[in-house]
Each structure stands twice: as structure tokens, then as C-alpha cells.
Design a protein around this nucleic acid. Structure first.
Lengths: 206, 206
DNA sequence: TCACTTGGTAAACACCGTTTAGTTTACACC
DNA sequence: GGTGTAAACTAAACGGTGTTTACCAAGTGA
């Protein structure tokens, strides 16, 4: 039934990418025929959307394991590096979740979703925002930065930029890339130092 | 002939996106039939690649007009904001050029391309690297940052992150985005300040 | 027993990128 | 001038796609 479809679809999407997987192949791999999928999903994109909804939580779990550090600034720094590593280790998964503009048409979040969105254990963005808020409350950031959401969104954009450029153009012969490790640390280091009230807080991390 | 194909393809790609445009529609719009395109291009992606090759230069031109500022740090800051604005004003164009992983298979750059790649007037990345190098030579950056390419790539990734997240998830009901303007300035401001030897250099820009 | 829903199939529709075969055109060469 | 050849184009087809339609079989409640 529904779970088998999602399982097969996830495996194939992650291995071959969204566009390379056809409904016929998904159906065949679990012994069904293509139109059968339409009794459970309204179209191909809804399968993708359902997978994304579920896997956002999994990313957050990995996040929490990865970055249980007392100091919020160090936690943000490590989260950034971990985020990029996650993206590069699961490029198709990452592309599915953060580089495909198909979430605009999915249903708006339910109340349960909103609750999960605010739980740092279930949502990676909430995890980041929580750390930012902690650092803000300790007065670690410069006084002109007060909005935890703005800062979290900016930090997220920074690591997303490194990750997505690597995924789409990492092997482009036109680009003379520095190593991904250097770029990741330069991004997390420079962005964070630019936010900090005392730039020396970053000593020993970069 | 070839120019008419490219002209029609550019217009349709930018209006409807790469996947939504079929070879038949391109051909029909200029009075040809689909297989005729294969006389001039080996496949659909080659049309895209040729368009990208040409339009990279146009972006650089817009860049040069936009940011003729003496101070290299201010120039970098303004370039970043201009870059994001360009991306958001031409989202399909931007997606074509920087968010589609199809440039790996196009031919490696020729000698003329390499020359253009190093000319700040013709290549936006060279423009950015040139400004970074200038700032480096003036001793504006912290001593641990010495590699102009690494810094240029990091700055590029930062603005690309803001732009691409806005394009793919800008109207996502799950995300409670701050304004694009705030996010752009927070990105360029924090990243640049984190690189600067004297953070006060940024006063009056943000 | 009978209506009705559920979950599936086979066939078809309208496309897609691409290939093949054949046709027209123009131009170089003996 | 006749002829061979290459280029530019078309009509038809191939295999594939997401999706719809029509139909069918099993289960369920009245």
C-alpha cells in the first residue's frame, strides 16, 4: 500500500534523482502498475512532497546527535559544517528537500506541523534558531542584530550556498574550486565572526 | 538559423523554465520542425549550454556598470546586493545559469574562454576576485585570509545561498521569511565584517 | 441479495526527446 | 553543363513520460 510506494520511491529518488524515476518504474518495483499510484497520490509531485515532509524530521534528528555542545556559538559553527556534510553525502536527498521549488503548492502546514516546526528536536531550522536565540540572550552577538529568525535564515542561506553550489557545479571544469572543507570553514567562520560582538569568541574553531 | 533558434529558446526558457519548453515548441515558434534543431545542436541541453556561455558575459557587464566604486570593500558589498537583485529579477535565467547541474558535461573551456574568465569586464567571478585581491593588497582583511579565490568563492556562495533559497522556497508557506532586503544585507554585512581586519570598515554600508 | 466503495488493471491520450529515412537546395569540381 | 556531395529540412516513427478513462474484482454494510 501507501508505505510500500513511499519506500520504493524514496530509494529510487535518492539513487537516481527525481526526474530520472518514472511512475512505471516505481510501480513495477513493488509489483504494481502505474495508475495504481493514483489511488494513493494525486500526482508524482505529491509523492515527493510526502517524502520531504517525513525526511525533514530525520535531518533534525541527525542534527541533534551531531551538535550537542554547550556553547551556542560553537554549536552553530558545528551545525553549519555538519549541514554541508549531510548535503554532500546525500546530494539527491538534499536536492529533493532544498533545491526543488515544488513545496509552494503543497498543502499549508497543519497545526501538528506548526508544533513540530517549533520543536528543535524535530525541525532542523528550529534547532538553529534555538541556538541563535541562546547566543542572543547571552549577548554574544553585536547589538544591531536582534532578530533570531533573520540571523538563522542568514546562516542557513550561507551553508546552503556552499552546499548547493558544490552539488550543481562541484565538478564544473570552468570553476577552479578551493577544497570544500576550506570553503565550508571560511563560510561558517566569516559569517559567524561578522555577527559576534567579540570576534575572538571564534578562536580555536576555525 | 542558429541565432534564431537561440533567440527563441532564450525567450521561452526565461519565461517558462527549461523543462516546460519542448523542442517542438521552440521549432514551431520560428517556423521549423523539431528535428531541424538537431542540425545545429546535438541535443536540448546543448542549446541551454550555449545560452549560458553567452549570458555569463552579460551578467558581468551589468556588474561593472553597477559597482564602479573606488573602495574595494564597498564594491564587494554592493556587488553582493546587486547579484541577489539580478537573480530575483531574472529567476529563470538565474536558475538556468547557476542552479542547473548540466555544465559538467559541456566542453571544457577553450583558450579564449580562459582568457575571458580572467577578465573582470567579461566574467562576474573575475570581477569579484579582482575586488577581493585589491582589498587583500590593501591589507583590509584579517591576516589569516590570504587566498583571493577562496574568499571570492565564499562570498559568492553566500549571496548564491540567499538568492537560490529565495527562488526555490521564497513563497513556501512553511517558512516565515524575513524580508529579502534584510536577509541580503545581513548576509553581505556579516560575511564581509567577518573577513575584515577592522570591522568598522563596514560602518555606513549596512 | 444488492448497492456501493476500495484498489487494482489494461488500454489509451497527449505529449516528450530523439532517430531514421528521404527530400530539397546549393555549391564545388571534372 | 553535368555530376557528386554536403547541408538543411521534413515526415514518420520509436520508446518513453505523466495522466485519464473504462472496466473489473473483492470486500462491506443495509
Amino acid at each position: 500500500m501507501k508505505e510500500r510506494i513511499l519506500g520504493a520511491a524514496r530509494e529510487m529518488f535518492l539513487r537516481d534523482g527525481f526526474e530520472a524515476v518514472s511512475l512505471r518504474k516505481i510501480a513495477e518495483s513493488i509489483g504494481y502498475t502505474a495508475p495504481a499510484l493514483y489511488t494513493h497520490f494525486s500526482d508524482k509531485e505529491e509523492i515527493l512532497a510526502e517524502l520531504c515532509r517525513r525526511d525533514f524530521g530525520a535531518l533534525a534528528v541527525q542534527f541533534n546527535k551531531l551538535a550537542r555542545v554547550a556553547d551556542p556559538v560553537e554549536r552553530i559553527f558545528r551545525s553549519g559544517l555538519g549541514y554541508i556534510r549531510f548535503a554532500i553525502e546525500h546530494p539527491n536527498h538534499y536536492r529533493l528537500m532544498f533545491m526543488t521549488p515544488n513545496l509552494g503548492k503543497i498543502a499549508p502546514p497543519t497545526e501538528a506541523d506548526i508544533e513540530a516546526m517549533n520543536d528543535p528536536d524535530q525541525d532542523a531550522y528550529a534547532f538553529l534558531r534555538h541556538a541563535v536565540r541562546e547566543a542572543l540572550e547571552c549577548g554574544r552577538f553585536r547589538p544591531e542584530y536582534k532578530d533570531a529568525d533573520l540571523l538563522a535564515q542568514t546562516l542557513w542561506a550561507g551553508v546552503h550556498g556552499v552546499a548547493s553550489l558544490q552539488i550543481t557545479h562541484g565538478d564544473c571544469p570552468w570553476c577552479d574550486w578551493r577544497s570544500l572543507d576550506k570553503r565550508s570553514k571560511a563560510m561558517c567562520g566569516s559569517m559567524l565572526r561578522g555577527l559576534l560582538r567579540n570576534p575572538d569568541d571564534l578562536e580555536g574553531l576555525a
